[in-house]
């Protein structure tokens, strides 16, 4: 495989990995507050169709992003009411949210199948993008890709450098202690859940408006589940989420290149590769218990009852 193709695979991998970056970072913040929301797939789908409709009607990317994020937040709000206010089981509620999202997005998208949008332009950064090879590799993506990198910086900074981030992590580690210190655990978790929903919605918008600018029922195609796996894969560290997302994107893209180069591997096996890689990584990191214990929020998935303390 020559070098130019290798660079092209990397560039395509970044685009393919971007929806994971958004959704997984959102889920990471949610999980850091101690809430496990398995509804990412559903939230991404609803975000994707709402963003798509907004883009098709107005042509404004800003509005599409806004609508997609709001829709994701509304979905997350349903989950919040169920698990935080009504104290329902988080796993069951999350699964229900995904199933609901699949149906709702299909219904909303009834009139929008097979409409194609123009997509959004690449925004090469002046001067920097003219550098041979590196310029193309680092500085010639669309605005939503840069946005995902900005999000990574913000989330890392927020979680580890700010007081609010410390409180959020505290709520995820020991909600009782946080409560005793006077923090409103339920309210903080609501904010984290809503943030997760907004980011999942944005990941969906990236798929339906920028990556493949058409609406197809179920077009998120399991990316929500992969995002959930990526959070564990990254052992709850934001930078590793980015690495995992791009790795996953690269494997997806590489399988097509291998076929195009005429290398004789069954295409069905290649389609399976990204998922195989996820399982492998999960197995490998699960052996390193200290890494997991160190970063995984201690109260993850456990319902918190403020009255029973």
């Amino acid at each position: 495989m020559d070098f130019a193709i290798f660079i092209k695979i990397l560039i395509a991998a970044v685009a393919a990995g971007t929806p994971f970056v958004y959704a997984a970072l959102g889920e990471l913040v949610t999980e850091k507050s101690g809430v496990l929301n398995l509804g990412v797939e559903g939230m991404m789908l609803v975000g994707a169709i709402t963003g798509f409709i907004a883009m098709a009607k107005t042509g404004s990317l800003l509005l599409a992003v806004g609508c997609g994020m709001t829709a994701g937040m509304l979905m997350a709000a349903i989950f919040g009411v169920l698990t935080l206010t009504l104290m329902a089981n988080q796993v069951a509620s999350g699964l229900a949210l995904t199933i609901f999202g699949i149906g709702l997005s299909a219904f909303l998208g009834l009139k929008y199948t097979s409409i194609a949008l123009p997509g959004i332009p690449e925004l090469p950064i002046p001067l920097l993008s003219d550098i041979p090879v590196l310029g193309k590799l680092f500085f010639s993506y669309d605005i939503l890709v840069y946005g995902s990198l900005a999000l990574l910086a913000i989330v890392s900074w927020f979680l580890y450098k700010t007081r609010a981030g410390l409180i959020l992590r505290g709520v995820g580690e020991a909600p009782k202690s946080a409560h005793a210190l006077g923090y409103n655990v339920v309210r903080i978790r609501y904010i984290a859940v809503l943030f997760g929903g907004a980011m999942a919605g944005l990941g969906g918008v990236y798929l339906s408006v920028a990556y493949t600018p058409v609406w197809v029922e179920g077009m998120v195609a399991g990316r929500g589940w992969v995002s959930l796996a990526l959070v564990v894969f990254a052992t709850w560290r934001p930078l590793r989420v980015l690495f995992g997302a791009y790795l996953f994107g690269a494997i997806t893209i590489a399988q097509f290149h291998i076929q195009g180069l005429g290398i004789d591997i069954p295409s069905q096996l290649l389609s399976m590769l990204p998922y195989l890689a996820t399982i492998l990584v999960l197995v490998v990191i699960s052996r390193d218990l200290t890494a997991i214990r160190l970063n995984s929020p201690a109260s993850l998935g456990i319902t918190y009852h403020p009255e029973n303390q």
């Binding site: 193709i5 092209k8 395509a12 798929l207 990556y211 893209i253 290149h257 195009g260």
Partner: peptide, 14 residues
């Protein structure tokens, strides 16, 4: 559409 796009891009890159 996602896969069709990725496959087309791979072909063009090659």
């Amino acid at each position: 559409p996602g896969k069709e796009r990725e496959a087309s891009e791979a072909l063009i890159a090659q």
